[in-house]
Design a protein around this nucleic acid. Structure first.
Lengths: 232, 232
DNA sequence: CGTCGACTTGAACACTTTCAAACAAAGTGG
DNA sequence: CCACTTTGTTTGAAAGTGTTCAAGTCGACG
């Protein structure tokens, strides 16, 4: 564990309000590791041993069933994943793999459970964090059920464009096939949909996205804070 | 509030471990109400005021976007809903309506937030409850993305059949159109799919479901604890 | 420069929705 | 208790959406 990692972690909403002594103890049992791209960090069904924190790089959370697989979320710095499985001491519902060279910190789940039982501030932070995760998945599920694929793609682009504001362009954070799977469609279908959306003010060339007509694109996506998350 | 309601609520996992004095205080600010079927209890986007507890009846959680709507979950006794919105003091992501004549208890959200800050046991219960909700939505989203509609219907039936074990029959808990929407399909499509599944050991007549060949049906559904929940 | 993987494109196919109509069941009012 | 309305369910045909398979293109990297 690098000393420089600690302040960043300490500032995460999850760890921000806990007692310093508890924070130190929690991170004492933790260890950091660097992984190349494409490494499977956890496998769905395995018992939950560690809370993972992404310091650098990017991690894909994905689910498998039979021969099929789909990406459920992308975690980028600084973010945590599989908090819920650690808390319930239950099997992971999702697998995780690095999409790029990544630096990950792993906090043992038993330490986690021990600390939030004696640090009320940490308990409250955990509650807030979990509630946020829950709401994120609900939004994702709502998007899948209420929007068709064209609308989902448009909404994805609008969301990332807002993050890049005031620019009217941004770079795709991950490969298109991962985005396609996240949006619940095949790569072929995403490719065609992107081409189709050129008529609605979207230009995608390789990894580079430019929006030439925000209003037209937003008219397709009909962004909604209850689906896409709060404005920021 | 009926005196007879209290013991049932007290035995819920969410309230089981808290101090009696805190429980009493929490429920003191609460009130119970009886609703006929079809009443909209909460509307998505409204600020979260109350944690709701279903004592009798059934409540549908649903989401709307534009002209479309879909049901996200069914809550039956004894169950709670919209805990996450109360905790985050954020707008509801889902609307709720009674499907039958229902008895609902409403606990003010500020009381909730106040109590788990001073009762560590309640905080832990809240964390566990939320983690459970989170995992339930993840499973639902996984099902939507990984299974096709025929598989989702088969899995739904297998899941409810297991609950009815050792019987090989059960009654549908809600209308078929609600089930269809929950499974992410149209009523017409559900109707056709049920008919198609007769070739795989399923018999549905009105609200009554009989499974004539469990193995065949399970071969279609391929039940998996990571999608359908733990065995019970 | 060649190879590999990701991306794109096209055509055929499978699945799902939509619209329209018929049917069934449950509740209403005479 | 029976017609009658209302609402949910089923069915069919047509249209729309998304997937699969196969082939070809592009770009990054060794």
């Amino acid at each position: 564990m690098r000393p420089s990692d600690l302040p960043e972690i300490r500032h995460l909403p999850l760890f921000r309000d806990m007692l310093q002594s508890n924070f130190e103890q929690l991170l004492q049992g933790a260890y950091a590791q660097n992984f190349p791209a494409g490494v499977e960090l956890i496998r769905q069904g395995d018992p939950a041993d560690f809370l993972h924190i992404v310091i650098e790089g990017a991690v894909e959370l994905f689910a498998e069933w039979g021969e099929g697989a789909c990406t459920m979320a992308i975690v980028q710095p600084i973010g945590t994943f599989i908090l819920a499985a650690c808390i319930k001491d239950a099997p992971y519902l999702m697998s995780a793999r690095t999409l790029e060279k990544s630096r990950i910190i792993m906090v043992p789940a038993p330490d986690l459970r021990a600390v939030f039982r004696r640090d009320p501030e940490f308990a409250v932070s955990t509650i807030t964090e979990l509630a946020g995760c829950y709401r994120a998945v609900v939004r994702h599920a709502k998007g899948l059920k209420l929007r068709n694929s064209r609308e989902r793609v448009a909404a994805y682009m609008v969301k990332h464009l807002r993050r890049a504001a005031p620019h009217m362009a941004f770079g795709l954070p991950v490969e298109k096939r991962v985005i396609a799977s996240y949006l619940g469609m095949t790569p072929e279908n995403l490719s065609r949909t992107l081409r189709q959306l050129e008529a609605d003010g979207l230009r995608v060339s390789g990894t580079h996205v430019t929006v030439t007509d925000y209003d037209r694109l937003a008219a397709v996506a009909r962004p909604d804070p209850l689906l896409d998350g709060p404005d920021p």
